[in-house]
């Protein structure tokens, strides 16, 4: 389903699921954001789950791409939950002074889908 970023986008009903397993850099990041936004536009999407359990490092560049993607999805009416952050990644981000404020997070895919259900029901 993915147009150019090599990051597959799965759909479960009105929810999109993406699992980032590769290093994000400029070209990939832009294509990834474009792919996600196109997928949101296609059919009544209300939620987006981004799984980052495959990332052993999230620097401020990658963190910014993730936060930006959530804000872009929000402008299109889709709520985002980031799941699967590894303990060492959480510790590193906070130590650097960036707690990914404004980004909804959950421990894993199950919790992420449950959180998304609550968020969407409330809006």
């Amino acid at each position: 389903m993915s147009a150019h970023s090599q990051i597959p986008i799965l759909r479960i009903g009105s929810t999109l699921l993406v699992s980032i397993q590769i290093d994000l850099h400029d070209a990939v990041a832009e294509a990834f954001q474009a792919d996600v936004l196109s997928a949101i536009e296609q059919r009544g999407t209300t939620g987006l789950v981004v799984d980052i359990s495959g990332l052993d490092m999230v620097d401020t560049y990658v963190a910014r791409i993730l936060a930006e993607t959530g804000r872009m999805a929000k402008l299109m009416g889709t709520s985002t939950v980031l799941v699967g952050m590894r303990p060492e990644v959480a510790a590193t981000l906070v130590r650097m002074g960036y707690g990914l404020e404004g980004v909804r997070t959950a421990l894993d895919l199950d919790d992420g889908l449950a959180l998304l259900g609550h968020v969407i029901a409330r809006r």
């Binding site: 052993d56 490092m57 999230v58 590894r86 303990p87 590193t92």
Partner: peptide
């Protein structure tokens, strides 16, 4: 794993 993530992330920032 915490020290590895720390030095890897710092390297990524400084290389960028």
């Amino acid at each position: 794993s915490f020290a590895t993530a720390a030095i890897t992330t710092a390297s990524s920032e400084l290389a960028r």
